[in-house]
Design a protein around this nucleic acid. Structure first.
Lengths: 229, 229
DNA sequence: TGGGCAGTGATTGTATACGATCTTGTCGGT
DNA sequence: ACCGACAAGATCGTATACAATCACTGCCCA
């Protein structure tokens, strides 16, 4: 089966979702080229819709488009990586506090199911899926806080975080232990905003500490970059 | 002159900039329809580029696109209006602090020129232009802080703020007195991060207090909206 | 007289076609 | 043998063409 979605209505948004998932789950590596014809063939649509999708992903920072060159999965620099987590540190703690004040039992149940799914993915050694679910968890909190604007920003930041993790994660084995997530859910259930805010702040710092943002030893983008001088 | 830019290379980005400016300066009202053919004729390009531009503006929240209906300048609801300023309250104070630690004499000079331009626009009774410049001032601070990610978010938030102001501004005459901006520049010049952060926080609260976010009494966009039922 | 319904024009959605630009491979000169 | 110019192929950028959908008008009928 060459086409992912046979006999289905494929919209640009659908392509964005599928590609985004693939990037989140690290099935497509940062720097990978996304040729318009190729993607179009896979989804069974013309380049028109593919271009729309790629532009959308460029706006959310997941894809970089170079004129007359094409679209590539973004490769955040060290600076960008730091900026992403700095922005998250500004947005998420307050949002967690707001979520604690609004979380309904249904919300809590949803988050708990989320954690279960995450564990299951880890046990099946599907690290990519687990990472994606972990990101969704953070977005879900913004949704519970009923902050659509921040949720939208956070979606972008979580996406870029996934790229950062693909590039700068220190030890591949130990994925973010969801103890932090568990504790957060507890705080939300109790409506304890102070604790939720602190836990979120700590959780983000913890994530950051597991990244290797000191020196760029990682493989260079292009040969030109690698060999210049 | 029917075309804004005769004998010039017009790119999608150019269209975004021009349209965005027009919205910022309130020359296009929230809710206004942006027909693809019409915009295309004005800029002398085909609908392809116009669609690209409108999609981009949709992503930044300045335009809302309804399938098979067309693109409209966004009309933030009361909730969205509040969210915009809540998000700014989270991002900007810290950013002002960071800017205070990094601002060079050139940066300060740039901001001061900004304030002068703003005053000049006010004296010429060009309220729209003054508003746009005022927004640029906030973005400039993020740039000084060297936070590209936050700068990008802030650009969107300032855009939407412009829409919010168009819809919910209480008294049309008194535009944001740039005393606040002046004091901020002073703090930045002195490298006083604490003061800069506090001033920014107060400035945003001040802006918010000048909005009428209680009830939506404002006039509807189209006759149909006005007369339905 | 008022509501439903089909026809028509206008507008958007998607695909295709053509031109521009970059990359790559080859050939001739030095 | 090496370097530069040129040509062919691939890929992207923009315009145009056609299909789908929507809004509106005018008609018909209760």
């Amino acid at each position: 089966m060459s086409t992912v979605t046979d006999s289905r209505i494929v919209t640009a948004e659908e392509i964005v979702v599928q590609l985004t998932e693939a990037v989140h789950e690290h099935r497509i590596q940062p720097g990978a080229k996304l040729r318009e014809d190729e993607v179009g063939d896979i989804f069974g649509v013309s380049r028109t819709l593919v271009r729309q999708a790629l532009r959308a992903m460029e706006h959310s920072g997941l894809v970089r488009i170079e004129r007359n060159k094409g679209a590539f999965v973004a490769k955040p620099t060290l600076k960008e990586a730091r900026e992403v987590f700095e922005a998250r540190a500004l947005l998420e703690p307050s949002t967690a506090r707001a979520a604690a004040a609004r979380a309904t039992p249904q919300d809590i149940a949803l988050l708990e199911q989320h954690i279960i799914d995450e564990h299951a993915a880890l046990e099946r050694a599907e690290a990519g899926l687990a990472l994606k679910l972990s990101g969704d968890f953070h977005v879900a909190i913004a949704r519970i806080a009923d902050q659509e604007t921040i949720e939208q920003f956070l979606r972008q930041l979580v996406s870029r975080s996934s790229l950062v993790i693909a590039l700068y994660w220190r030890r591949r084995n130990a994925l973010c232990e969801s103890n932090a997530h568990h504790a957060l859910v507890d705080a939300l259930r109790n409506g304890d905003g102070d604790t939720a805010e602190d836990l979120m702040k700590g959780h983000l710092l913890d994530l950051l500490s597991q990244l290797d943002l000191r020196e760029q030893v990682r493989g260079p983008v292009s040969l030109k970059d690698a060999l210049k001088k």
